[in-house]
Design a protein around this nucleic acid. Structure first.
Ligand code: SF4
Ligand code: SF4
Lengths: 160, 160
DNA sequence: TTATTATGGACATCAAAGGTCCATAATAAA
DNA sequence: TTTATTATGGACCTTTGATGTCCATAATAA
């Protein structure tokens, strides 16, 4: 009877950002695509999309020029813009897993076991295996996202 | 000046669930670990942790018995409980990426390009490359999480 | 100078995470 | 058969973040 709606997924903003970048890449012969055209292409409101674009500009993914015939264009070639980069700009850069029980008995128990390991990796961080598994998962995910760029999507889409 | 705090990370509940399961696995010679002991071990309130445990029970990860000397125990051997399973029980099973612009011009443009592909994979779903990259990322992540179990953490922690 | 376009701040809304409290059900021990 | 104990689930609360709008301002090319 309950409507459980827990969430571990990327935000709509990330979706919008990726789609906008693809449109810019696809129209790179032209210059300065305005927010009007972008929002029409994606079917998203100008106000909201402009927030997303501003973020992309602040992080050097796109360039923006105001005024007549202004708009956006990629700041770098599309093959240098990875999925990971876009996601991190929009979603932030916190870790996929952050310890919430660092002051617990259990943390002490599990982290102390790493004593042998702390000889080589002596950073005093004392992370346990749970954290290591989760960090490994994150790195796996990131590595995959690093290998895919905006250009790679276009390449596969428009080869015929 | 802004405090951007966007979030793509696992919830505290997932953290609690993993830690609780590790405690149960570590104490499997005993039976029926009560919520009192669990919450003391993790340093988390009984009320909240009991919600998490109930979820784990409803999905067959742990067994629970009320009454004097009651408590929780693993419903299956620890080597059969994967990280992925625990995460999905707590976080739900939606996809990491869901299309938010399915009615856009761009979707039509990108999805139509898959015409050649629809001959073999004729499901009418017409997903584009963006979605495929993201789904690939998800599958990558999941595969990794499937390969790690509660037992594997204990093994590495208590080998000396 | 002017029309146009992006920017950023201020709000508004809504859903979900995180958490508490309590009444009830279930159970084992006495 | 009590009784003490423990888990369960519903109701409720608070805070946060995602999503979104609106407007005043800055910047720029024509
Ligand atoms: S280091 Fe391990 S035991 Fe300690 S809080 Fe993090 S996940 Fe939990
Ligand atoms: S299928 Fe591709 S283009 Fe269509 S909404 Fe999904 S990600 Fe966007």
């Amino acid at each position: 009877m309950e409507r459980e709606e827990v969430n571990i997924q990327f935000s709509k903003s990330t979706d919008y950002a990726l789609h906008a970048l693809i449109h810019l890449a696809h129209s790179e012969h032209r210059h300065n695509i305005g927010i009007k055209e972008l929002s029409a292409t994606l079917g998203v409101s100008e106000s909201y999309l402009s927030k997303v674009m501003s973020k992309l500009r602040r992080d050097g993914i796109v360039r923006a020029v105001p005024g007549v015939n202004g708009g956006y264009e990629l700041a770098r070639p599309a093959e240098q813009i990875t999925f990971l980069e876009v996601i991190q700009v929009i979603e932030g850069r916190q870790q996929l897993f952050e310890c919430s029980t660092l002051n617990s008995q259990q943390h002490r128990l599990l982290a102390e076991e790493g004593a042998a390991e702390r000889d080589r990796d002596c950073q005093g961080k004392s992370e346990c295996l749970v954290k290591k598994v989760m960090d490994g998962a994150e790195e796996h995910l990131y590595q995959y996202l690093r290998e895919h760029t905006i250009q790679s999507v276009l390449d596969e889409a428009f080869q015929r």
